[in-house]
Design a protein around this nucleic acid. Sequence first.
DNA 1: ACTATTATTGTATTTTTTACAATATAATTA
DNA 2: TAATTATATTGTAAAAAATACAATAATAGT
Lengths: 244, 244
Amino acid sequence: MNTILAKDHFMQTYVSVDCVVFGFDNTQLNVLLVERNTQLPRLRDLKLPGSLIYQHENADEAAHRVLNELTGIKKITLKQFKSFTSPERTRNPDDIGWLEFAYSNRIDRLITISYLSLCKINRRLNNVSKYQSVEWCPVNELPTMPFDHNQIVEESLEEIRRWVEFDPAIVFELLPSKFTESELRKLYEAIYRKELDVRNFHKRISGIKYIVPLEERQTKVAHRAARLFKFDKILYNKRMTTIE
Amino acid sequence: MNTILAKDHFMQTYVSVDCVVFGFDNTQLNVLLVERNTQLPRLRDLKLPGSLIYQHENADEAAHRVLNELTGIKKITLKQFKSFTSPERTRNPDDIGWLEFAYSNRIDRLITISYLSLCKINRRLNNVSKYQSVEWCPVNELPTMPFDHNQIVEESLEEIRRWVEFDPAIVFELLPSKFTESELRKLYEAIYRKELDVRNFHKRISGIKYIVPLEERQTKVAHRAARLFKFDKILYNKRMTTIE
DNA sequence: ACTATTATTGTATTTTTTACAATATAATTA
DNA sequence: TAATTATATTGTAAAAAATACAATAATAGT
């Protein structure tokens, strides 16, 4: 093999991580975006939170670090999703220019490893670097973003749907700790883009032990106040152990 | 951001692809391994087929290229699975030495993007480079492999099970074009490591339109010859279009 | 002809999913 | 305070899917 492959065909490349963090605003899914630092005059220049990875860290660590640096989020579950490796993804001169500005290095090729997360949308965000803002953007109203970030979000959405089918409990990461049944139902409807029958949904939910009804109810609503529920992580983890 | 991150914290790295190709020998799942070229005397030194990626290609292209170079396989469906990025994965001096031998370059850090594929086990294999052999190895009898290749296979197996749940039709890539019902059942049993009821399995299979019974039967078997079936890709693709 | 081995198939039961709409309650309004 | 508005809450019947369970059929080899 070493005889047929000349070494200069291979390449070293920079490797980044990009985080796709989803939130739910009771109507639709949102993605967490940061404003890109740039000297060029622009109205808005939003992108996924991301960064090159350091020498000493693996990609998981880099993803947590960058999310903390750019949004203040510390404790969060991030799951590796997919690598985006096309040489074409760093063809836009604006993007090349921004990379050189941000990292003080000419970067011609950059592959990125994307990470996914589900997050409560009212989570406190402290952007550490004062020049950048952080904001939620509805997935149906995303701006055109640099690199292939639009494509990354698109594929991430499909992946989220697969996750939910495989492990329905992950949706609670998108809800406040106390939520109503209709909030939960609307979340499912947003993920699947499909209306669900209220009664059948109730039947299904009420059979799930780890979705616990509380004595509390909504306040300050102009109609009958709905009961609040919580997701019980301990019951959820016990769920499988009785079968064996 | 550029002010708090010194550029020399970042790194360039080599990036490889590694292919985990599964086959089914009517009893258990197998993985396609290649013999590593090495000057050191060893009895056997098997690893996943993999290679550094070229400057001009993306990871998908690299995966197809390397599989073709090392096994002669050309047309195959490869799906990106996961990146393995730990700095620890290139800590073994033997592995570093082999990388230098194979690529004529000192490589201290190497991340790899793994690809998965399902393949008919009787597929013709032509290893292009004459010094390396290619062989199927049962997943339960894997040798200790370089880098983190054992871990990659382990995680790949779990991923395959998720695939099959999501899209049961992919299992036909592991079977010959004509197969018996019991071959199909044994494949499911191998994937799930669980016995399945013969009658219920038949009931389920006979309800699936794209699994087509043929008039042909087994030959040269010392017992009642079983009917052969085929997977009809066209019927499979039509499967969803009638609902709408 | 007999044996060994695997193929083939049905029924009753249980569980899950689906379709469908009337009543209850909190806040607001007249 | 009675009426209105908006959403919450809940049951039943039918259909579909999953499960448990074992006797008979066919072929190759002796």
